[in-house]
Write a protein that binds this DNA or RNA. Structure first.
Lengths: 236, 236
DNA sequence: GAGTGGTCTAGACCACTTC
DNA sequence: AAGTGGTCTAGACCACTCT
């Protein structure tokens, strides 16, 4: 099977154009109908090719807006550098955080177990969007123990939570447990990220403890998979 | 936009069947034509629905063989437990490793930089397949410094490399640096994993150093994304 | 309002797996 | 040999974005 299909041909050609710099980060690709015609394929086949490029993280799709060239991935070291703004700035990008929602909610069984509190204990819930260069790349849901950082909801949460914890409550992260799942976006998250339901994503679950070993918060981060490279170390 | 499309309807229904246990891990789904007819949709739409389920990691596609129910993910802690056989056994699965290729090759610029040797230095190259319960879930390419473990290629590499290092060469891993990319499979790897070019995958790059800080090997692991949950810790 | 992307149909042909 | 998945076509209609 060394025959190259049409979808693969388009993938190879676009990949080449992207690597050679003919297309630059942030550029919008021509319309699907135009591209399909230039490759002499049907729109379905063209979209297959585009999807392959997107799976590699070289382009991404903005819902109903078209296909765009993805910027280089940002190095994300969740175990040692949980500060989004510092991370993006260091990589030469413009970070932004927008709080979509902050409420007090009763802990579900799952959340209660993670936070090490009783079910239905009231906890803070935050939903925030992370931007790099005006593109929403991450939607983060945080469940925070109210007893650890009372009054959190009165703070401006459009910056770094670690800074708030430290400056307002004198709390610093100790151990951080991280789980990582390649998965797909549900409708709500997809909408927030201006992309489509089912778009492939990286789900990072973080359980953050204080220096005293007590759980501070539990976070679900839904990342556009093309935006980051996750890095960490182990061993001695 | 609260209208649920056909693809999504199929996704929801199959997800429900999988969670309820009507379909069990390893089961083959009915043929696409049969499913399309039962949902009263075209094959293209049916495949869209199947793809969404696969993106969640609940089913997977075996090239030309059909769609199968995926077993639960195995916890993979690359930073502290690099032993595949132990990991899978602990999770109740049957692990297997098959060496596809072992050769001596000159280091390319990239590989030389990672291994901290001169370009074109001769290094060991291994390509191995990892199985869980007879399903190939990972294709691993290793570049090993010959000066660290001379004679490695004469060993049976169908087991754990860390054990060989330790028992034959008295070498133990010290620091491990890990990078993680959600990406898509190329043709060669896809073929080895009995899946299709472009299937979404998790690429894990590991740089393994000895206790003396010298690089021992550099490994590229291509994982079927549904097979594992990556876990690690950080902080104090 | 024009153009575009999102979704879907109803076929087709081939190569491969399975029986 | 039959059935299946892999790939592709040539349309269609709608809802949304863009200008």
């Amino acid at each position: 099977m060394s025959v190259v299909g049409q979808g693969q041909r388009i993938f190879l050609d676009l990949t080449q154009q992207l690597r050679s710099g003919e297309l630059k980060p942030g550029d919008k690709l021509p319309s699907e109908r135009f591209l399909a015609e230039s490759y002499h394929v049907s729109r379905a086949t063209l979209r297959d090719g585009l999807q392959r490029v997107a799976d590699q993280g070289l382009i991404y799709r903005a819902n109903r807006r078209g296909w765009f060239v993805a910027p280089p991935r940002v190095r994300y070291q969740p175990a040692i550098e949980p500060n989004f703004h510092q991370m993006v700035s260091a990589a030469g990008g413009r970070p932004k955080t927008q709080t979509l929602e902050k409420r007090i909610v009763p802990a579900t069984a799952t959340i209660a177990a993670m936070l090490d509190v009783d079910e239905n204990t009231l906890v803070f819930y935050l939903r925030r969007l992370r931007y790099i260069d005006d593109r929403a790349v991450c939607c983060a849901e945080s469940y925070v123990r109210a007893d650890q950082v009372p009054g959190l909801l009165d703070c401006n949460t459009d910056g770094s939570m670690t800074e708030i914890y430290q400056q307002q409550f004198n709390k610093t992260y100790g151990k951080i447990d991280i789980q990582l799942y390649p998965t797909a976006l549900n409708q709500q998250i997809a909408e927030a990220l201006l992309t489509v339901e089912g778009a492939s994503a990286l789900l990072i679950k973080r359980l953050n403890k204080g220096l005293d070993g007590q759980v501070i918060d539990y976070e679900l981060e839904w990342w556009c998979h093309d935006a980051i490279t996750v890095c960490f170390s182990g061993g001695v």
